[in-house]
Write a protein that binds this DNA or RNA. Structure first.
Lengths: 211, 211
DNA sequence: GTCAAAGTGTAACTTAAGATACTGTAGATA
DNA sequence: TATCTACAGTATCTTAAGTTACACTTTGAC
């Protein structure tokens, strides 16, 4: 594992002793874009600390259709995972690498230990819960209080931010999955955005002009 | 404050010393049905421990229209509140007493102290976050994955459970507020349920037969 | 080059739900 | 009693979005 990378992401919130513990107990891993890191129903034995990249977190309905909840980025961890660990529950969500991602997997057992020992760890855990609850509220707002055209625009903006590129490399079908709707609806709305001059449509990608 | 009531709700999870601390630092309060306990934008200085009754938690859009998130009941606390305390944020939600409710208000300052000192408090706080995240996911599921007729049925079932009565004392307008829709839509759907023999409609209340 | 599969465009139709408008009635109040 | 207001029933119209179907194009496999 690369100490520098760990320090640059977490050095300002964890004390040196804790960083060392993480180096010893944690497993460094690189996840290629598109790989499923966690499936609904999986047992969870480790907690991810993200060093770089991004992971998208999805919720599924009884028919297997999905809804994008939010992205995890550098410095984030998955509170839903923590939450599941604690209750010895299976995962409620699916996690897929949005891009190539580096992370450290910490065994669940260490979590409780560090919660006792390190104040910075406690704060980190609380902060994470805090962030996740805010993200969930924000997701709820977007889905409930907005119509599909607005949700699509917000989705594209988020993609641009996460991927640091104005090229959104997704098919209409993929976008439709994330937004829990059908391909036809997305094609229709994208076409409208193109006619307004806000985007350019191409095969398998969308170029964002100005949203 | 009534020691017996506190013990009956929290005695099995908090050690005696912590119960004593709560008795000393907490303020006992009775909230009458319908009273707003917390408004969006309020600063939060206390955390509620619910002894009896129920509190409904609402989220608001930019126009002031609401969505019911979930209910807090005996033994619950509001993690969104904890979350807000920590970040020194204003409240993201509104809380209204669903029925006459007894609770204890704990000053935020004590929270951090107890997190250090009492393992049972730490577990309680983590457990609460866990429950709240699960509730939020469940709310999201209901809203996104179901149509209004299913949501209405789930809403009525929940009301029956919370109020322990098959009489739901609400006007169509009030139900519409909670479900973020219009009165006309609710009247329409309720009428259908009545025609199916699942409920009986009356002025200002609904009698649940079988859902 | 041929062919199949994936991706997109678009039309036509259906449906859930939002919006508006008007009616009738029960209950409270003066 | 008369009156007013809140509540509910219902019709009509509109719209966002879901559904189905089919045509056309690009891409990659063979």
């Amino acid at each position: 594992m690369n100490l520098q990378e760990l320090k640059s992401s977490y050095g300002h919130i964890f004390e040196a002793a804790l960083i060392n513990e993480i180096m010893q107990s944690g497993t460094y891993k690189e996840i290629p874009e598109g790989q499923t890191m966690m499936e609904i129903g999986d047992y969870i034995k480790t907690m991810p600390l993200i060093i770089s990249g991004a992971i998208k977190i999805l919720r599924e309905d009884s028919e297997g259709d999905e809804l994008l909840l939010y992205y995890l980025e550098k410095g984030d961890t998955c509170s839903i995972t923590m939450s599941c660990c604690l209750g010895q529950q299976r995962s409620e969500i699916r996690a897929i690498a949005e891009m190539d991602t580096q992370l450290i997997l910490v065994p669940v057992g260490k979590m409780e230990e560090w919660t006792k020992t390190y104040k910075s760890w406690r704060n980190f855990v609380f902060e994470s819960y805090h962030n996740r609850i805010n993200e969930l509220l924000s997701t709820l707002d977007k889905v409930v209080f907005n119509q599909m055209d607005q949700r699509l625009i917000q989705y594209l903006k988020e993609k641009v931010r996460i991927n640091k590129s104005t090229i959104v490399k997704n098919t209409h079908q993929e976008i439709a999955y994330d937004l829990y709707t059908s391909r036809v609806v997305i094609s229709r709305l994208l076409k409208k955005l193109e006619q307004m001059g806000k985007i350019e449509l191409h095969r398998s990608y969308v170029k964002i002009i100005e949203l």
